[in-house]
Design a protein around this nucleic acid. Structure first.
Length: 739
DNA sequence: GTAGGGTTAG
């Protein structure tokens, strides 16, 4: 142990012999002072020195002493699991304590699966059987991994052993089943715990909260009181969280006073839980008041406040909170990114992501990437999306199901279905969300048949479809006119797959029937629905009426829709389009007056196009773009070229715009999607497809024009509208004009 | 000498 560059410990030399008359002949304790030094270690290097000394003195081969070394290397503040493992592997016959310590350390590490491997090794190599300490550790590893089969196996082993009524182990199992989302099993274990303690109750309450059953959590809280088990701070954290889910501020306030009245110790975590409850119940005032009086705050407190302000849409105050935060935790960045992304401000979300990159104050994590990818999807911005994909690869992020789903969604919504499929096939583990995202991607691109095939593949892979899967597959059938197939699947939902159809599924069915011209059937379907039709149901019927020019039914659907949602501008626009299509001009102007009088405005059509990573936005008749002259010149050229090949503008689409001030700008030529396409033609190379995203449904005339442009200019155009993709190539569109 | 339950971001 010559050159040591670290603070060197002064080793006690040989233990002092107290006095010659009472010589300590007990050879079990000759090096005891060295052992007590282990506890005083403050760095790994010091520990290594002791380890070396232990090897030299032979103390290392005393199982008790070796276990002490394991404990410190695996669990201290300066611990190194890899070092602990090296030490462990050198011990000839580790005792059960050492095994347990290693499993414990792995279970709470970033790689809990190693805890399970060590457990298996233990079964094979250790003379002793796992004990009441082993199981809580290894079950915790299974919970972390949500390894439901493995955990179930541990449960079986426990039941066969003499530990079947150990409350610690049973509590661990409740927690385990809760984290796997298996509430039934969690509850079964809970009910069978012979002497429940407060942790048993807390674990089950938490399981209910996690499993989105806040009412059951409250119920258990009451039952616990009746059984005279005193709730503690952890109980309250769980119940407050349930309260946030219910957004029940009254009950939340009652819980806060309950905490006071019962003298439950309030620590930082409990304060944070109260803060979170106030925020989720929409009372930022209560949250602020509590926050200002909290004696101690951590990154969770700050992040919760930040979340509170963004929920209220108060981005300025959120910005102030963010700037006041003592350190820029990644969670805080994530709140900002996802709040923009979820409130329809994807550009702002990506701007924050960019700032994070520049500032380097925190390292993006999986949540950051998922939210940012979703922002790219919304924008249809494939360049930043690709950049993030490369980033994921370079940083060595494991493609878990969350990230895979986001990547598939991003590529599909940015028009690159092939790349989405590539990602899909590149991963081995596909959960129901990954499959559903792929089915949605196929649906969006008009590949309904393929979507159905993927759905069957998914069933073969033993993945159980959920409500999202059915929304996507029904949407696929609807977009591709596969009425028989869609109807068949719809009727199988509940009896075969146990998924109760929701309003979205009914809306898909109305859309599917209506689109294919079976309007009367669609109406009957609505009338027979077991749930009350919502605005979206009538909206789907109205859309179908527009497609097939059925004025009478349209008026009925529209009046129903406006009963439910009086300010739905879409309804007015659709109805006025139907009137225009059927030459009912007096009705068009009547509707226009109603809209004007009630101050209902049409959502302005807006198309965006991404060129070299920059997103350009166009409104109808937009003059604000720096290259606007060139764009209009190009539009004239297009108009001339198309005229030559016999194109006649379809004037009925003019009447999408019912407001007077829009009248001047109504020329079809000035629709936002045409402006964006023209800009794409002058600013990108011919080999590059033109990618346009429109916020509304694409206009019929623009659809015809885009088809012709794709032929005349030999350019691929990818146009995403509110509902689907249109892939124009050689004069045809991927939607086969069924949209 | 070992244990189980807790707050934020998708």
């Amino acid at each position: 142990m010559a050159a040591l560059s670290v603070p060197v410990l002064s080793f006690p030399h040989h233990p002092k012999v107290p006095n010659s008359s009472t010589v300590n002949n007990d050879l079990r304790f000759p090096y005891y002072p060295l052992l007590s030094l282990i506890d005083q270690c403050t760095s790994l290097n010091q520990l290594k020195q002791i380890h070396a000394r232990m090897l030299r003195t032979g103390l290392f081969f005393d199982p008790f002493s070796a276990s002490k070394l394991i404990t410190v290397s695996a669990l201290s503040s300066f611990s190194s699991l890899d070092y602990a493992r090296l030490v462990f592997d050198q011990i000839p016959q580790p005792n059960l304590y050492s095994w347990n310590t290693l499993i414990r350390a792995y279970a709470s590490s970033s790689d809990p699966v190693r805890g399970i491997f060590v457990f298996l090794l233990l079964l094979d190599r250790c003379r002793e059987s796992p004990n009441k300490f082993t199981f809580p550790f290894v079950i915790k590893a299974a919970s972390e991994l949500k390894a439901s089969q493995v955990g179930r196996g541990f449960h079986g082993m426990v039941m066969k052993s003499s530990l079947a009524s150990d409350v610690f182990i049973l509590n661990s199992l409740v927690h385990f089943y809760g984290s796997c989302g298996d509430l039934d099993s969690a509850y079964r274990v809970f009910r069978n715990i012979p002497r429940k303690d407060v942790v048993s109750w807390n674990s089950m309450i938490k399981a209910f909260v996690q499993g989105d059953c806040p009412d059951e959590a409250f119920q258990l809280f009451r039952e616990m009181e009746m059984e005279n088990v005193k709730p503690n701070d952890v109980t309250m954290v769980g119940v407050l969280s349930a309260c946030g889910k219910k957004a029940d501020i009254e009950f939340g306030r009652w819980l806060c006073s309950y905490i006071q009245r019962n003298g439950i110790a309030v620590n930082l975590t409990l304060n944070n839980a109260m803060l979170d409850m106030y925020v989720k119940c929409g009372s930022i005032e209560d949250a602020k008041e509590l926050f200002d009086t909290m004696p101690e705050k951590d990154v969770v407190s700050w992040t919760t406040m930040l979340d509170g302000y963004t929920r209220m849409g108060d981005y300025d105050e959120a910005q102030r909170v963010f700037e006041a935060m003592p350190n820029e935790d990644i969670a805080a960045w994530n709140v900002r990114i996802s709040s923009y992304e979820q409130n329809g401000k994807p550009k702002e979300a990506l701007a924050v992501f960019h700032k994070l990159q520049v500032s380097k104050s925190a390292k993006p994590d999986e949540v950051t990437l998922v939210s940012s990818l979703s922002a790219c999807s919304q924008l249809g911005a494939i360049d930043p999306g690709r950049w993030i994909h490369v980033y994921i690869k370079r940083q060595g992020f494991k493609l878990n199901c969350h990230l895979t789903t986001s990547l598939i969604d991003m590529y599909a919504k940015c028009g690159d279905l092939e790349k989405a499929l590539e990602v899909f096939y590149s991963v081995e583990r596909k959960d129901v969300y990954v499959w559903s995202a792929m089915i949605a991607g196929l649906a969006m691109h008009g590949r309904g048949r393929d979507a159905i095939d993927y759905f069957s593949e998914m069933l073969k892979a033993k993945v159980k479809p959920n409500a999202v899967t059915f929304t996507n597959i029904l949407c696929a059938c609807s977009h591709s006119g596969l009425v028989e197939e869609g109807t068949g699947l719809f009727h199988q939902m509940e009896p075969v797959y146990g998924v109760v159809p929701g309003v979205k599924h009914y809306a898909c069915m109305v859309d599917m029937l209506g689109r294919s011209g079976r309007l009367q059937e669609a109406l009957e379907f609505i009338e027979k629905m077991p749930i009350a039709p919502t605005a979206s149901i009538w909206g789907a019927l109205l859309g179908a009426c527009r497609l097939h020019g059925n004025v009478e039914l349209a008026e009925h659907a529209c009046s129903k829709l406006l009963e439910l949602d009086p300010r739905n501008h879409g309804a007015y626009v659709l109805l006025s389009n139907i009137y225009a299509k059927t030459d009912k001009w007096d009705q068009v102007s009547r509707l226009r007056k109603v809209m004007r009088d009630s101050g209902i405005k049409k959502e302005p059509g807006c198309s965006s196009i991404e060129v070299n990573g920059i997103v350009h936005e166009f409104l109808v008749g937009d003059n604000s773009h720096p290259l606007c002259k060139d764009i209009y010149k190009k539009l004239d050229e297009i108009a001339a070229k198309l005229k030559v090949i016999g194109y006649v503008p379809n004037k009925s689409h003019l009447l999408q715009f019912v407001e007077e001030e829009d009248m001047k700008e109504q020329a079809l030529n000035l629709h936002s999607e045409k402006l964006a396409i023209a800009f794409g033609l002058i600013s990108t190379v011919p080999s590059q497809p033109i990618r346009v995203v429109k916020n509304l449904r694409v206009c019929g005339d623009c659809h015809s024009v885009a088809k012709l442009i794709s032929k005349v200019y030999e350019r691929e155009i990818l146009l995403r509208d509110r509902y689907r993709f249109h892939h124009f190539k050689g004069g045809h569109c991927s939607c086969m004009d069924y949209w």
